[in-house]
Design a protein around this nucleic acid. Sequence first.
RNA 1: CGGGGCGUAGCACAGCCUGGUAGUGCGCUCGGUUUGGGACCGAGAGGUCGGAGGUUCGAAUCCUCUCGCCCCGACCA
Length: 592
Amino acid sequence: MRWSTYFIPTLREEPADAEVISHKLLLRAGMIRQLGAGIYSYLPIAQRSVLKISNIIREEMNAIGGQEFYLPAIHPAEYWQESGRWSIMGDNMFRLKDRKGGDYCLGMTHEEVMTDIARNELRSYKQLPQVWYQIQSKFRDELRPKSGLLRVRQFTMKDAYSFDIDQAGLDKSFDDQRGAYCRIFSRCGLDYVIVEADTGAMGGSASNEFMVYTNAGEDLVASCHACGYAANVEKAKSRIPDVDDGDIEQAVEKFPTPGVHTIEDLVTFSGGAAADRQIKTLIYVSVAEKGNDSKSTPFLALLRGDHPLNEVKLANAVAKLANKDGWEQTAIRPAHPEEILELMGANAGSLGAVGVTKAWVFVDEALRGRRNMTTGANEDDHHLRGVSLERDIKVTDWADLRLVAEGEDCPNCETGKLQVGKALEIGHIFKLGTKYSNSMGARVLNSDGKEVPVIMGCYGIGVERILAAAIELHNDDAGICFPITVAPFQIVVTPLNVKDAELKSIGDRIYEELAGAGIEVLYDDRDERAGVKLNDADLIGLPFQIRIGPRKLKEGKVEFYDRKTRQSEDVPVDHVVKLAIDRIHEELVKLS
RNA sequence: CGGGGCGUAGCACAGCCUGGUAGUGCGCUCGGUUUGGGACCGAGAGGUCGGAGGUUCGAAUCCUCUCGCCCCGACCA
């Protein structure tokens, strides 16, 4: 490819509204341009990278028996209503109407579409297992698109679905996918970690996320160096030391606490209590839907005073009670002040669960067995001391509701401490089970002639996130340092002055020979100053460069430059093509 | 949805407070000189100042509304 006629609009200056490194470099390298919030056009070299990533994914999916589909992006609402996700997805889903007023959406994923095909076509266990996948655009009306390609409203996703007759089959399909994911991310040059994750709106039993540690990420991962435990903080657990509540169980006593409205206030208040001897009382609302009806149910969540709430854990705990009689919880949210007053008869800052019987009370496991605690009295400016959990509070359900913190003990081994780091999710695999096959009626006959729901798994990868993550992980002050497997080209050939006929003719020859050998080569035949060409080459980050300049050519040599190490070696003109081919193959082998 | 910021040439920005002929740098075009890490000289092209309404003799500038984009938050009562 000749750079002089190829479209790579590099930017010298940094775009004003880019924040994260990959966003800045994608713009500066002429790879993407924004069309709207969270909507990007991929320019030619970005498209080359995306296609290379897609092909790696395709190869690994095919290697485990995956079969590629092409599915509609626009879905009639009825399929999503059947699965129940028409309401669960809420404002995150792009919705539209056709000319007759019929409801449609743009697909966020394709469980419904794939399950529909499965239920129409799969009849017998003899047809299982099946592994179906696609690599296509997905649409999500994100609350806040941001960070270039990291959180967008249209993106490319590889999503695969497995259909098995039993749990053992699902386990194998899941493990196959997990192995394929490891190979895919390794081949793309990404350091990743596999973590336990919440299943969220997908439903299902188990799930693993594939994460890349980077400050541009939006998730937090808790991990233990001692044993390798790693989990999304949405799911992570930890061990904490016991707190001494004293030997004697005291009686409940109300006392005035004027002006005390926070845990912290009560710690310093004379006659108050340490934060770990307090009970924090939070009022939340479960929002549920049934058909076109919706309802809001306020409830209490109790934690130790110094423990932060993990909303995801709380939502999961509440859903067990909220999802019945056809109701499906779509969200939980903090209660509004007027809702708190109505439910509790007091305002935030003086709340407590003692005597509460008309609302659900969810209590964090860390409070189990605790005695002589201090909490709000449900009367403004009053608190209670001497509260014992089991004796004084009517607990609806115990659950793990606590957000783990850095430095707490690993839940999985004796010695480790948890570290918490920011990470970017690049892949997610789920054991769905029968959630969709039940709601949509995908059943086959088993070997006993009995009709059973198909056991499903689903497996997603964000293609552009791989590109962005590769840039986040591999860059320096001059620009991108692409892993060769995702680089738009493998090498750039740069005659430093194309008006010098000798430099140009040698450049032409090297370019032709590399291209003839099947190397993905970009030829910088632009009539630009050397500085411009070298800076652009560094910026777009191809792994290797061949620089042809007058100084070295006097000795019959050209420079072979390694972008990542920024080392160059002088090579006789006649040897450089072979050297380049060898080095490129070496790189490819490293990432195979 | 709440808070903050910003919309002026392809890009980055100044001008706005205090109303009076729309600017700077980079990029772009042409000519010349240059040529190993983002050259120099000269001559040019390019903007309904996000949009609508209002105030005024006069609005990029003041007022109202609106659209868009960026950042933070939307868990700890």
